[in-house]
């Protein structure tokens, strides 16, 4: 601001030359300042990678690749394998996506096609609030309210229903504890719902109206327009949104830690207690004694970071491609 005021008063040539030189120097300083802040973002990322790898080295040397496919987790004998945690992470997230993807798309259809105009904004905001609630709140709610309710009203009913059906009796079998893999997955699905519905709604809005109008003109019903015109057009955006949600679900810590039961084994039943990578780290890190124990937990963190990196990176590539298309269309 001072520079502009200065520039207004300048009359003589030498003054102006000095001001230009001063401005130039200030420009360079400012540019370098912003550049180094931008590079700092890269440095943080590299630092996370490097520190995890260095921290995980002792465990890597000790267990090799076996760490990934060993189920045993025994702090007393210092035998560590991450399989149960990796399994829990993947299963809870995939189950969560099974619920959240169709429901999220349904919400987006509701908000763009069915909802009365006046209600669109408030309902949209309400759904987005689900993403704003901190995960620890989901955790405490899940532990004290949802798990007991689920145990009393849904879980026992499901166990009874499938008691004599082959395969399903194993998947929905076992004692109904309330907490476990399935409960964690349901809570995750509620948490990631807004990510899917928000991205999906945004891509739905980029569909050129003329496409929809043409389909309506041919006599299509609303559902046919959504299913055959809007969804195919918005496909990559919807997949991108789902991947983003998956990335969140995989790394989610507190909500899962409260309700998963922290049991290091793989059971066939989805009602059984289990654990995830993040829940194991959250539960055990401060109590871990011995370098190998700590290092094993850090290696699990590295595995989690690696998985989420791949998922989030592909989500981004899809959404970026979409942005470019939307940019060139308008």
């Amino acid at each position: 601001m001072a520079d502009i005021a200065l520039a207004g008063q300048m009359t003589s040539i030498p003054d102006r030359a000095i001001a230009i030189r001063k401005g130039g120097a200030r420009d360079t300083r400012f540019r370098v300042l912003t550049l180094s802040a931008a590079v700092l973002v890269l440095a943080i990322f590299a630092g996370v990678m490097a520190s995890l790898i260095i921290g995980a080295l002792p465990a890597m040397r000790n267990f090799g690749w076996g760490f990934i496919y060993t189920e045993a987790w025994n702090p007393v004998t210092e035998k560590f394998g991450a399989l149960a945690s990796i399994y829990g992470t993947l299963v809870t997230s995939l189950l969560a996506m099974l619920v959240a993807v169709p429901v999220g798309i349904g919400i987006a259809i509701f908000l763009t096609e069915i909802c009365p105009r006046a209600l669109r904004r408030p309902i949209g905001i309400a759904i987005e609030l689900l993403a704003g609630i901190p995960s620890i709140i989901y955790g405490i709610w899940g532990l004290f309210i949802f798990a007991p309710w689920f145990q009393a009203h849904v879980q026992t009913a499901l166990v009874d229903t499938f008691a004599n059906v082959p395969y399903l009796q194993d998947i929905f079998g076992g004692p109904p504890y309330g907490i476990g893999i399935f409960t964690a997955a349901l809570i995750l699905s509620i948490m990631v719902l807004p990510f899917i519905s928000a991205v999906t709604r945004d891509v739905f809005e980029t569909v050129p109206p003329v496409l929809k109008e043409a389909a309506y003109g041919l006599g299509c019903t609303t559902w046919e327009v959504m299913w055959r015109v809007v969804l195919p057009f918005a496909r990559s955006g919807v997949v991108g949104g789902a991947m983003l949600a998956l990335g969140r679900a995989l790394g989610e810590t507190m909500a899962v830690t409260f309700v998963i039961g922290n049991a290091h084994h793989i059971k066939q039943s989805v009602f059984a207690p289990g654990t995830t990578i993040s829940a194991t780290i959250a539960n055990e890190f401060t109590e871990a004694v011995g370098d190998l124990y700590l290092s094993s937990l850090i290696e699990m963190g590295l595995i989690l970071f690696f998985i989420t990196f791949i998922v989030l990176a592909s989500a981004q590539l899809m959404l970026r491609a979409l942005e470019r298309r939307a940019g060139s269309a308008s």
Partner: peptide, 19 residues
């Protein structure tokens, strides 16, 4: 930077703690 920043935006916060 944009790419890495968006990864950090959604990366698991527990990993931040480990770092």
């Amino acid at each position: 930077v944009r790419f890495v920043n968006d990864i950090l935006l959604s990366a698991p916060s527990i990993v931040t703690g480990l770092f």
